[in-house]
């Protein structure tokens, strides 16, 4: 009888674990898993559509100083100007018994993808790139507005509500996690 009970317990555990694995849709990692991902809706710049006075002025500048190597003719403005951005948020869970971290993020919707944090000191907001987002063993970290986020710099397309964005995360332990994040209003 006791052996039967033991078997039953093992069987339940197996089912339980399998269930865990299957329920993590959009993720495929044993250590860090992702839930509730989302990306802030954002529009690209007006390059391409009807430009106002400023757009024309900038185009004027462009003609007087032709920039070699700038293909497509979409990138006008200064070095960092006219860059559309957005941010991705999610909850990182670590069910493993060893600490891990996200060390890299990639996505085809932005030219550059970085890991950032916002620190608030005396109500002054300071945004800083970070090398890694640490996720303690058996713990979780929430990426949310006003804190850690995956920053999408230089959008390659408009991010409209209802769409989905693929983001690839790399962990320090060398795993990759594919995240499918819905786009939500700002």
């Amino acid at each position: 009888m006791r052996r039967l009970l033991g078997l039953l317990a093992v069987a339940m555990m197996v089912v339980g674990l399998a269930g865990c694995g299957a329920s993590q849709s959009g993720t495929q990692a044993s250590g860090i898993t992702v839930r509730d991902p989302w990306v802030r809706a954002a529009m690209m710049n007006m390059a391409g559509d009807q430009s106002g006075a400023m757009g024309n002025m900038q185009q004027g500048n462009m003609q007087s100083t032709p920039m070699a190597g700038m293909g497509g003719g979409h990138s006008h403005g200064n070095e960092y100007g006219n860059t559309a951005m957005s941010a991705a948020y999610m909850v990182l869970e670590n069910k493993g018994s060893t600490a891990d971290a996200i060390v890299k993020a990639e996505s085809d919707v932005a030219k550059t993808v970085e890991l950032h944090n916002v620190i608030m000191e005396n109500n002054v907001m300071q945004m800083r790139p970070v090398e890694a987002i640490e996720v303690p063993a058996n713990g979780q970290v929430e990426l949310k507005p006003g804190g850690f986020h995956v920053m999408l710099i230089g959008l390659t397309r408009d991010l409209k509500e209802g769409e989905e964005v693929m983001i690839k995360l790399t962990t320090r332990s060398g795993k990759t996690i594919e995240v499918k994040a819905p786009v939500r209003k700002p």
Binding site: T112, N123, V124, M125, Q126, M127, R128, I153, G154
Partner: peptide, 22 residues
């Protein structure tokens, strides 16, 4: 309002602005 420009040499942003949030 506190406004401090911070260069971010290792970021695609180039720089950011620390600023008050009131």
């Amino acid at each position: 309002v506190t406004v401090i420009r911070r260069d971010l040499p290792n970021s695609g942003l180039g720089y950011t602005i620390d600023h008050s949030g009131y």
